[in-house]
Design a protein around this nucleic acid. Structure first.
Lengths: 287, 287
DNA sequence: ACCTGTCATACCCGGCGGGTATCACCGGCG
DNA sequence: CGCCGGTGATACCCGCCGGGTATGACAGGT
């Protein structure tokens, strides 16, 4: 009844991503027939058609969409198991590698909070080593899911906390970051409507789960790039208050009156049972 | 980097459960050497020792404990993927099997709420068929996790909602269910302390995640058994208000003043993306 | 010292995963 | 209309690996 090998899942994910057996096989580093056969076997075993083989490429059926979502979760869980097991290895051999926790944080965000947290935790009697893993703009969720991280700082409502346990740590308002030379930079406060439709200053967009929201603004990949585009007068961004720490002289921050507050959470996989993690969470909630 | 086949996970889980290669192999329906070799290979690949082979049996290392927890989650995710894919099969072939939702409910609990929910949902224009899956006492979590169910009614704080998305539906108090002949049954209200330490009437215990809380009371497997033991004057139970619907004449229900309220939630896997599920949840929250 | 119970090792075999070559199909194009 | 390019499926072969059987190594208990 179990009958789902990770090999089959990997093949199917590749084909479902590419919608093309040849390219999928290439990505998998093998010839075209093996994935083709494996997916046929999978369809026979499940008694379900996963792909509609049209002339000219491939399309997913409803069952295929389901397997794409659920299989992604299953593969993430499997790689998480491998990574966390490897990381836990030797923790009980006295001379071996120490138990560690990997903490994912959005690069450049929550500096002060992070410092306070690490300092306070290091002072705990049973503290273990914390490895801080800077992540991309909204990548912490994937890092927790596939085991690259054990715990993360996340920012609602930008990160989805679905599927994780979490505790709120801090709430802050949001600011509009404008080129200092722009007329709006002179205002004491602004509203979201003020900054969302400036023709000469389109709102910057960044990816969430790999896709970008629609709009005319530039697509942002990292904070430095954003800072530069703002300084050049090409875009405007809406960011949490704590972003003030990395602003340039060419930037002006104006508080937004109606932007939703940003809540920084500490989040971890719901099934986690680590004592070290529990200690870190206890420290965090006491800050 | 992926490198974790479900076959290896199955073997390891069996050995970690049994702490004995021979019995594990028997449970897996094969001879003893294959799991032994597979786990050795796994240890080499991960570069980690998973089991301490002592004279007389086997013990888990720290890494082994980690793999036991994380691997259970991964296997559940894989079987969930298989089951849900199979269930979604044919949903896009017009004459084929219909899209269904499987709803897990604790057998015998929340009758009224369940009726209201099913009736209200059936009246929705885009309703799909709902299969009601009666589950054991606290089994809904596993059913959601391994794909036997798509959505569940859960009762905080008895069920853990960790790892699921959920919406509260109903809050109710708790009652003590006593043999009608017992002196305490004459009281109008009771406190938890009143019923937890009656020497001749030990508190019934039921399993949560497969283990029973300690105590002198009988271990309960289903509701009928509990009803009978109470009627016989052998035990007392603390239950949500809605349990009144199935009480016998030999039972007396007495409200508890200080028991924590029971909140019935509708819960579903956090990553679920089903339209039918969204409709059911919308209906439920509007009740 | 022997026996027992445990896990590891040695060896063999069949099946399956992967490669190469080729087929079947269809759309586009001259 | 026939040819071509590109797609996925099929046929066949081979080497590896998963599984079985038999046996070894080792530690305790009697």
């Amino acid at each position: 009844m179990d009958i789902l090998e990770t090999r089959e899942l990997r093949y199917f994910m590749a084909v479902a991503d590419e919608l093309h057996f040849g390219r999928a096989a290439e990505r998998l580093g093998m010839a075209q027939p093996p994935p083709s056969r494996a997916i046929q076997q999978l369809e026979r075993r499940l008694g379900v058609s996963l792909l509609k083989r049209n002339r000219r490429g491939v399309a997913l059926t409803g069952a295929g969409e389901m397997l794409l979502h659920e299989g992604r979760a299953a593969l993430d869980a499997a790689t998480a198991a491998a990574r966390r097991t490897r990381r836990a290895g030797g923790a009980d051999t006295p001379g071996g590698p120490r138990n560690r926790l990997v903490l994912a944080v959005k690069a450049g965000a929550s500096h002060e909070l992070l410092h306070k947290l690490l300092d306070a935790y290091a002072a705990e009697p049973d503290a273990v080593e914390i490895e801080v893993l800077p992540s991309g703009l909204c990548e912490q969720e994937g890092m927790l899911r596939d085991g690259r991280a054990d715990v993360a700082l996340m920012h609602a409502p930008f990160n989805s906390l679905a599927g994780f346990d979490s505790e709120p740590l801090m709430t802050e308002g949001q600011i509009a970051v404008l080129p200092a030379a722009h007329p709006l930079a002179a205002h004491r406060t602004l509203s979201l409507a003020d900054v969302s439709d400036i023709p000469e200053l389109p709102l910057a967009r960044w990816s969430r789960n790999g896709t970008y929201p629609p709009g005319p603004g530039p697509e942002i990949h990292d904070q430095t790039q954003l800072a530069q585009l703002i300084a050049l007068g090409r875009t405007v961004a809406v960011l949490p208050d704590s972003a003030r720490t990395w602003l340039w002289a060419e930037h002006t921050a104006v508080p937004l009156t109606d932007a939703p507050p940003v809540v920084t959470h500490i989040a971890w996989p719901a099934h986690s049972r680590s004592l070290a993690l529990a200690g870190l969470i206890r420290t965090a909630t006491r800050l």
